[in-house]
C-alpha cells in the first residue's frame, strides 16, 4: 500500500516552451540566419581608399559646422526658411482638415463597409508612396516650387493622420458612444460628444508631431525641386558651400527643437 505521500516523487522539471517546438528545425533556422548574416557582411564592398579620401571632406563639413556662415547667403536662407514654414503650415492644416473625414470613414466601428473600404484605400495609397516619390510626380505635374511641395506634404499628412486617428477611433470606449446615442443624439452630435472628447488629446499631439515631420520633410523634398529650405540646402551643397549648408542645417535643427518643446507644452494643456 503506497500512497502519494509515501513515495517522494522525483522533482518535476519545468522549462519555458521554446518558440519553435521542433528542435532540429529550430537549430537549422538559427544556423541559417547566422550564415546569411556572415555572408551578407562579406558581400558589402567597401572602397577603403575612397573612404580615406572622403574623411577629408567629412572633416571639412564638420569643421564648417564649428564655423557656420549665416551671413553670406542670409537672404537665401531666410527666404528658404520662410518658404518651408509656409509649406509646412499650409500642408499640415489642409492635411488635418482632409484627414478627419477620411479617418471617420476608415474606422470600422462607426463606418459602413463601402465607405470603410474607400477611405482605407485612400490611406493605403497615401502611405504606400514615400514623400520623395510623390514630390517628383507633383513637381512634374505642377512645376518646380513650393506649391508642389505643399501638395506632397498635404497628401502624405492625410495618410499618416488618417491611419492613426482611425485606429484611435476604433479603440474608444463604446459605452460612452452608446450612452450618447441613447439620448436621441444625431450622428454629428455623437461624433462631437462621444468620439471627439475621447480622441482629441492624442489627435492634437499627432497633429503637432506631423507639423514638425512636415517641416523636416520639406527640407528633403526641396532637394528634388519642391521648393523651401531643401532647395536652398541643395544649392549650397552642390556649390561645396559647406559653411552655408551647416548654417541651413542648424536652422532646421533649431526649428525642429522649437516645435518639439512647444508641442510638449501644448499637449500637456489638452490632456
Amino acid at each position: 500500500m503506497t500512497t502519494l505521500a509515501d513515495t517522494p516523487a522525483a522533482p518535476r522539471r519545468w522549462k519555458r516552451p521554446p518558440f519553435i517546438a521542433n528542435a532540429p528545425l529550430r537549430y537549422a533556422i538559427y544556423a541559417g540566419a547566422l550564415i546569411y548574416l556572415v555572408v551578407a557582411i562579406g558581400s558589402v564592398e567597401v572602397n577603403w581608399s575612397r573612404a580615406i579620401a572622403g574623411m577629408e571632406r567629412g572633416q571639412a563639413f564638420i569643421s564648417a559646422f564649428l564655423a557656420p556662415d549665416f551671413t553670406t547667403r542670409w537672404t537665401d536662407i531666410r527666404q528658404g526658411l520662410l518658404e518651408s514654414l509656409t509649406m509646412t503650415v499650409i500642408s499640415t492644416v489642409f492635411g488635418i482638415l482632409l484627414s478627419i473625414p477620411i479617418a471617420l470613414g476608415a474606422a470600422r466601428n462607426i463606418a459602413p463597409w463601402p465607405i470603410y473600404y474607400v477611405c482605407r484605400s485612400i490611406i493605403a495609397v497615401s502611405r504606400a508612396f514615400q514623400e520623395v516619390v510623390i514630390a517628383i510626380v507633383f513637381v512634374a505635374m505642377f512645376g518646380f516650387g513650393p506649391f508642389a511641395g505643399a501638395m506632397t506634404l498635404a497628401f502624405a499628412t492625410i495618410g499618416f493622420l488618417g491611419k492613426l486617428l482611425a485606429e484611435d477611433i476604433e479603440d474608444i470606449d463604446r459605452g460612452q458612444v452608446e450612452a450618447i446615442r441613447a439620448t436621441g443624439a444625431s450622428w454629428p452630435q455623437q461624433m462631437n460628444y462621444a468620439i471627439q472628447p475621447q480622441v482629441a488629446p492624442r489627435f492634437i499631439g499627432l497633429c503637432l508631431y506631423r507639423l514638425d515631420i512636415n517641416f523636416r520633410e520639406s527640407a528633403v523634398i526641396g532637394i528634388v525641386g519642391a521648393g523651401g529650405i531643401g532647395a536652398t540646402l541643395n544649392t549650397a551643397l552642390s556649390r561645396y558651400d559647406y559653411d552655408s549648408a551647416a548654417a541651413i542645417l542648424l536652422c532646421i535643427i533649431a526649428v525642429v527643437f522649437i516645435a518639439e518643446y512647444s508641442s510638449g507644452f501644448i499637449r500637456r494643456r489638452f490632456l
Binding site: Q176, E178, P197
Partner: peptide, 18 residues
Amino acid sequence: ALVERLSVMENVLSGQLG
C-alpha cells in the same frame, strides 16, 4: 458611461441632445 473628458454639466446637458 459618462463621457470622461467632458464636464459634469456637459454630461448632464448631453441628455438634451435629442
